[in-house]
């Protein structure tokens, strides 16, 4: 059978699309470049929104990208169950597009934080985390200035009680996120957003100190192959 096809979206100002595509290929899937200005998902089986500074972070991170022509296709497809992963700026875009609740605001300490971050996998039942164990501790790079997850009390409570917090920071919260939240999922579990970068932790040479990000891509591949 043909390889699963994972779309990797590039907006003006996206930085991590090459690493994202490489991580998809290393897992054995086909990486399909998707361009923000085209209303075309090219029939992909899943979509990866990588990090960067789309539209220069003008207005708010992800605020302009949300209205890109490609997003007009992606938003309804995600609501219909298409697996979508957003990391960093991709997470910000998913929140601005209301595919995920809440928002990402300026880091509490005001500093841009770039470091290896211990993260706990809280929910190993999503399309992107099934290859991890619930409670597993992994290390992924974080690099952002606006990653403080906020949501109103009711939303937070719903996320917690419905098991939709997917990742939590361990060993120090880098940005002041409420409840140490590093990543969340949609009600159906097909849309996942997180601030850390699994696509930068997939190879021994450059992924130091870990290749813990590989599980995202093996998870989605397994799901698509078994589908």
């Amino acid at each position: 059978m043909s390889a699963a096809r994972v779309g990797v979206v590039t907006f003006p100002g996206t930085l991590d699309d090459q690493d994202a595509a490489r991580a998809v290929r290393l897992a054995g899937a086909e990486a399909v470049p998707l361009w923000h200005a085209e209303r075309d998902l090219k029939g992909v089986d899943a979509v990866f929104l990588p990090g960067g500074f789309s539209y220069g972070d003008y207005l708010r991170c992800g605020a302009i990208s949300r209205f890109a022509p490609l997003m007009e296709e992606l938003v309804p497809a995600a609501r219909d169950g298409l697996p979508v992963l957003g990391t960093c700026n991709g997470f910000q875009i998913l929140c601005e597009a209301h595919l995920l609740p809440g928002a990402l605001t300026r880091n509490q300490g005001l500093h841009y934080v770039c470091r290896d971050q211990r993260v706990q996998v809280v929910n190993a039942d999503t399309a992107w985390t099934a290859e991890y164990e619930t409670g597993q501790e992994i290390v992924l790079p974080v690099k952002h200035g606006e990653g403080r997850y906020v949501a109103d009390a009711r939303t937070l409570e719903a996320l917690e009680s419905e098991g939709r917090v997917v990742f939590r920071y361990l060993g120090g919260n880098p940005n002041g996120s409420l409840n140490d939240i590093a990543g969340i999922t949609s009600e159906a579990g097909n849309v996942v957003g997180l601030m850390p970068h699994p696509e930068h932790a997939v190879e021994e040479l450059t992924g130091a100190p870990s290749v813990d990000g590989r599980g995202f891509f093996t998870s989605i591949l397994k799901k698509l192959v078994n589908a």
């Binding site: 605001t105 880091n107 509490q108 403080r148 109103d152």
Partner: peptide, 14 residues
């Protein structure tokens, strides 16, 4: 304006 309950670290720094 950020809602009153949302932390504004920039305002605090000022």
């Amino acid at each position: 304006m950020l809602k009153p309950e949302i932390l504004d670290p920039q305002g605090q720094a000022i």
